[in-house]
């Protein structure tokens, strides 16, 4: 499974992207993916210059690709855990 986290927005307007290819059935990935609060995508867009995270998970073949756009203020808990794990996964 390919997991991509793309961060856009922010005062500087400079995008960053992190991705990793993982075995969804190993090392707790499935457990983490199941814990992701997908309803975090709603609301929370007050103010200006905050980051926006786009998370895309695609399996191969791409039968169950899903994507979720999450405002920074809701990008906490399991979402932040996911990003940290993707960053720490060697390419």
């Amino acid at each position: 499974m390919r997991i991509t986290v793309r961060r856009t927005g922010g005062m500087a307007g400079i995008s960053r992207e992190w991705s990793a290819t993982v075995d969804a059935e190993e090392e707790g990935w499935r457990e983490l993916l199941d814990r992701l609060p997908r309803d975090a995508a709603q609301g929370g867009a007050d103010g200006a210059d905050r980051f926006i995270y786009l998370v895309v998970c695609a399996s191969d073949p791409e039968t169950d690709e899903w994507r979720c756009e999450i405002p920074e203020r809701n990008f906490t808990g399991p979402w932040q855990e996911l990003l940290d794990r993707v960053r720490d996964t060697p390419e």
Binding site: G10, M11, D46, G47, A48, D49, R50, F51
Partner: peptide
């Protein structure tokens, strides 16, 4: 934190990562 933002009632500034960004 590599950003500064307006949260609807106040300004918030990060210190930057020190590699790309200095303090905002």
């Amino acid at each position: 934190y590599d950003n500064a933002f307006w949260d609807g009632s106040r300004m918030v500034f990060g210190d930057g990562d020190g590699e790309v960004f200095d303090r905002f």
